[in-house]
Design a protein around this nucleic acid. Structure first.
Lengths: 206, 206
DNA sequence: GTCTATATCGCGATAGAC
DNA sequence: GTCTATCGCGATATAGAC
C-alpha cells in the first residue's frame, strides 16, 4: 500500500484529477502546484507526500490519460471478428469512431497537445503514447488489410499508416490548431476519398 | 524606424536569434528572458525596449519562423510549370522535399512542436502557421490534381489533403515524437504507397 | 538606446506540529 | 497522512543613470 502502488485513495485521485485539469490547460512549465493543491482541496505538502516532484506527478497523469483514452477503440481481438466485413463498412466505422473522439471529449484535444508539447522534455512519455495508441491501432488495421479476403493491397502496413495518419492529421489541424475555418473539409469527404483510394488500389477482382 | 518596423538592427536581430533558440528549446513558459539576454549579448532592458513583453517577443519569433520555413517549398506559381509532369514524378519530388526538411533542419522540428504546444495560449499563431504553410501547399497541390491531364480524381482537394496530411503525420511521429523505433516505416514505402493509391484512384485510360 | 540595479511576485519544495 | 508556515530562488518587468 505504498504511494506508488495502484490502490485507491480519495485524496490521491483528487490530486490526479486536479493535476489533469491544470496540466492540460497550462502545459507543464506553466502549471502551478499551488493551483493543483487548491483545486484538489488538499495542501501542497500532501501532493509531495504522494508524488515526489512535479515531474513525477506529470508522468503519473499522462500515464493515466494514456490508459483511459482510446483504450478500446480498435483492440486487436475485435479485428479478427470483422475480417470478413467489406472494407467500406469497417473503414467507415473506424474513421467515424476516431473522428468522434475530439468532438465528444474535449479533454482529448488537450491530451494530444500536451503529449506533443512536452515530447522534448519527456520523450519517454511520447514513446509510451505511441506504443499504447497509434501502434496498437496500426497493428490491428494492418492485420485486417493483410487478411481481409476482399483486398489485395501491395503494402498493407503502409496503407494502414496512411489511413490512420491522414485522420490523425485532420484531428490536429481542425481541433488542436483551430483550423476548421482555414482548412475547411468535411469528415465525409475525407472518409469517402480515403476509402476510394484504398479500394481502388487493392480491390480483388470478383 | 520604430521598433515595430522591419528595418534592420543588429541588436534586434541578435535578440530574435537568441529568443528563437531559447523558445524552441524550452517552450514558451519555461523560456527565460535572462537567458535570452545573455545569449544575445544584451541587457534585459534592451529586450524590453525593442519588444514590450515576453508575449510580443514570442509572437515576433514565430512570425519570423513562419516566413523562413517552407517559404518556397511549393509556391503556387511553380505548379503551373509542372502541370504536365506525370503524377509519379511530381508527387515523388514533393514528398522527398518535405521529408528532407526535418533531417536537414532540426530547428524545424522544434518549430512544429512549439506551434502545437502553444496553440491553446496563442491560437492566432497556430492559424497564421496554417495559413502560411499547409494552406498554401494544399492549394498548390489541389490545383495540380484538378488540372493535370494524366489524372481524373473524384475529389482533388481531399486527395491533396490526404497526401500532405499523411506526410506531415509521418514527420510528427518519426521526428517530433521520437517514434522511429516504435513505428518503423521507410520513407520509400510511404511515398510509393501514397503514389500507388492516388494513381489507382484517378488514372485516366490512355 | 543601452546599461546596472532593483522591485515585486510566485514558483517548487520542505520543516515540523499534530 | 495531512496540515500551516516558510525558505530560497528565479521569474517578468521597470527605474534611472549615461
Amino acid at each position: 500500500m505504498t504511494a506508488a502502488s495502484s490502490c485507491s485513495s480519495d485524496k490521491r485521485d483528487a490530486i490526479l484529477e486536479g493535476a489533469i485539469a491544470e496540466f492540460l490547460k497550462q502545459g507543464y512549465a506553466a502549471a502551478s502546484m499551488d493551483r493543483i493543491a487548491s483545486t484538489a482541496g488538499v495542501s501542497k505538502a500532501t501532493i509531495y507526500s504522494h508524488f515526489q516532484s512535479k515531474d513525477r506527478l506529470f508522468i503519473a497523469i499522462v500515464d493515466r490519460l494514456v490508459l483511459s483514452k482510446f483504450a478500446d477503440l480498435l483492440a486487436p481481438e475485435q479485428v479478427t471478428q470483422h475480417l470478413n466485413d467489406p472494407p467500406e463498412q469497417l473503414l467507415r466505422h473506424l474513421a467515424s469512431t476516431m473522428l468522434q473522439v475530439p468532438r465528444q471529449d474535449p479533454e482529448y484535444v488537450g491530451f494530444i497537445r500536451i503529449v506533443i508539447a512536452e515530447s522534448e522534455r519527456f520523450p519517454d512519455l511520447a514513446q509510451t503514447f505511441l506504443r499504447e495508441l497509434p501502434a496498437i491501432a496500426l497493428e490491428s488495421l494492418s492485420h485486417y488489410f493483410t487478411h481481409c479476403p476482399h483486398l489485395a493491397l501491395p503494402d498493407p502496413e503502409a496503407t494502414a499508416r496512411i489511413f490512420l495518419g491522414a485522420i490523425a492529421h485532420y484531428i490536429i489541424t481542425q481541433y488542436v490548431l483551430y483550423g476548421a475555418d482555414i482548412l475547411p473539409l468535411t469528415e465525409t469527404r475525407l472518409i469517402d476519398t480515403l476509402i476510394a483510394m484504398i479500394t481502388a488500389s487493392g480491390a480483388k477482382p470478383l
